[in-house]
Design a binder for these strands. Structure first.
Lengths: 203, 203, 203, 203
DNA sequence: TATGAATGAGGCTTCATTCAT
DNA sequence: TATGAATGAAGCCTCATTCAT
């Protein structure tokens, strides 16, 4: 009996995760509107109705999928930055790893690039949650530190974050559309150089 | 006969334009998927079926909306650049005017920022038309010229265009979500400075 | 002026006929429901609205198309029977020519075979007009004569007409579906033989 | 579990059958093109969408309706022929029972007579399924046997089948349009006599 | 918790018909 | 008579969501 209970709980936990994983997969492949719950459920190996036991509705499922993806990616990337000591290096490695992570999982990247834009209504409905906010904030903090550390000119951190996030975005977007025409290594290297040149404080 | 034709055509153009304007408005507000033809028609002051006299289907309406907007904006912006002589100045004024044009027409901006992302399927369906392509090419040409003119380091023009277009995109996107938190003048000025510093060739 | 008037009248006459001809063509190719007035008008070289000057509505156009086709075919066939003297010969030549006429114009044949069946509602709406009625009556008359002439056993003329019209129908229908598998000459010859054997009065 | 499954399946079968019955009814009354799914669903006592759980689309519904009817009728008729021993008797009883079955269920008959004609497109779309094919083949087999048994002259079996199927068709069609003017018993009797005379081998 | 059949609103599109010119 | 742009009703189908089991 005890064993059964344990199993049950673990199954329950799994189910939510499996639905989420399936949703990410399906949303990424088909986009929000063409994705349909029946397929998500099938891919998760549960009944249609079960999805509604764990998620309020399709919007909720989308929201949580996005959050999960963003959080996972963000954590992945942040882990890789631990060994960097100077803020300026963290900043550029963040740039590099972000592009790496997104281009490694193109369908997920596409989903995030596309659907997050569209979610103005999500911003309205869930004003507290902006999945880009963490990114924005993280970059701004790094910029502030880099300024403090004296490696960077005292530009407005927000501004710099727009520039960096925009560049990341732009590179990934173009790569998604024309993967063959974008040499990721070269491009990231050069962008890094330009930004570095533009921001560095002569010491 | 000629007169009749002219009249007819001008009427046609008007209705087509009205539908297009309505479509832009509705698409921008609701997004492509949640926008519906009935509403577009109503807003244009025509019957549902009339839309299909001027546009093949919903996709075509979206495509033509995008094209119209992009072309109009692009022409507007290019006109303003004529007086600039040096490529590097054209480049930064392009940046400036783009942001100006887009933030002056927010609903249109939102539409373009959001829907164009989503249109990977359009790229596939209409591979000959990429509304960003003109932008991309224009910026690359300016970079090439700037390098030739000796004002800019010989970075890869594509790379630089990613950086610049990404920055433009990012600024507009953030402004759309939180207009109050983005000081457009300051931000564009600073970005310009960073990019300029990063790219300039010491002379 | 006189000349102009003449021209005009002749044009008018032509227009009705041209619309009818176009309708027959389009109905035959697409069937009643998938045929559309715009295409009929285009093919007739007139404006959409003009169709409604000559025909009350789509149903009317269909009805008149059918009537025209049936009448034309019927007259064609009857002309070819003039030289036959004995009723029994007329009967079998009618059979032969009918199949010949219909298989010579397959799309028209298909239209008549298919749409006439469907037109129960036409029978209701225009109870006086049954395009098959003339056929039926003609065959019955021939049977009566053949009986009188002593070449045929005194079967009920209606019955014989069912048999003959049914055979014609069946052969044409099968030929329409699988033209390659039906040897028209052989089939008509044999059917004629069977019917002849079955009906003939030993003399 | 087994019980549940059974129950479920039996419910499913019922609903499918109800929809099928409703479809036959509506198709027969209005014809394929003017029939609409909403009405079929209403008559079956289910929601519109439910139809699409059991049938892929309107075409599929039509196809399956036809197949069901043809198969049911065909089996019914064949059962009644078991007691006949000679092929020639089976042949004429087939004729008799066919007309009996069809005139007993007029709306179904009308549906089959009318819609099957129209289904050239179905033959193209579903080339493997020709609901008339079984009929045709069955009659041809009987003719072959009758020839072997020495009761019938060696006519081409296909030809004879055209004749017999055509006669059946013709009688039913006329009866559908003018039931009062067709004395089924007399007509079938006479047709049988003519065909018998025409085909019989003097022994 | 879990199921999945059933629901029915809503979307895109077509086209017979009208009417102002 | 002739035009053809405009109309808008109506049809097929999808799918998020519910609910009886």
């Amino acid at each position: 009996m005890i064993h059964a209970k344990r199993q049950k709980r673990s199954i329950v936990v799994d189910k939510r995760k499996e639905i989420l994983a399936a949703a990410i997969e399906v949303f990424a492949r088909k986009g929000y509107n063409k994705a349909n719950i029946v397929e998500v459920a099938a891919r998760a190996g549960v009944a249609t109705g079960t999805v509604y036991l764990y998620f309020k509705n399709k919007d909720d499922l989308l929201l949580q999928s996005m959050k999960t993806m963003m959080d996972t990616n963000f954590e992945d990337i942040k882990k890789k930055l631990i060994k960097e000591k100077k803020a300026i290096d963290k900043l550029f490695m963040f740039f590099y790893h972000h592009i790496d992570v997104f281009t490694t999982r193109p369908s997920m990247a596409r989903f995030l690039m596309v659907e997050l834009r569209q979610s103005e209504e999500f911003y309205k409905r869930y004003p507290t949650y902006n999945p880009f906010h963490d990114y924005q904030e993280f970059v701004e903090e790094l910029v502030k530190k880099a300024i403090k550390e004296g490696t960077t000119l005292p530009y407005n951190p927000s501004t710099v974050s727009y520039l960096i996030l925009g560049a990341m975005d732009s590179v990934v977007t173009h790569w998604l559309i024309h993967p063959e025409s974008v040499d990721l290594i070269a491009v990231t290297g050069e962008i890094r150089k330009i930004l570095h040149n533009g921001m560095k404080k002569e010491q």
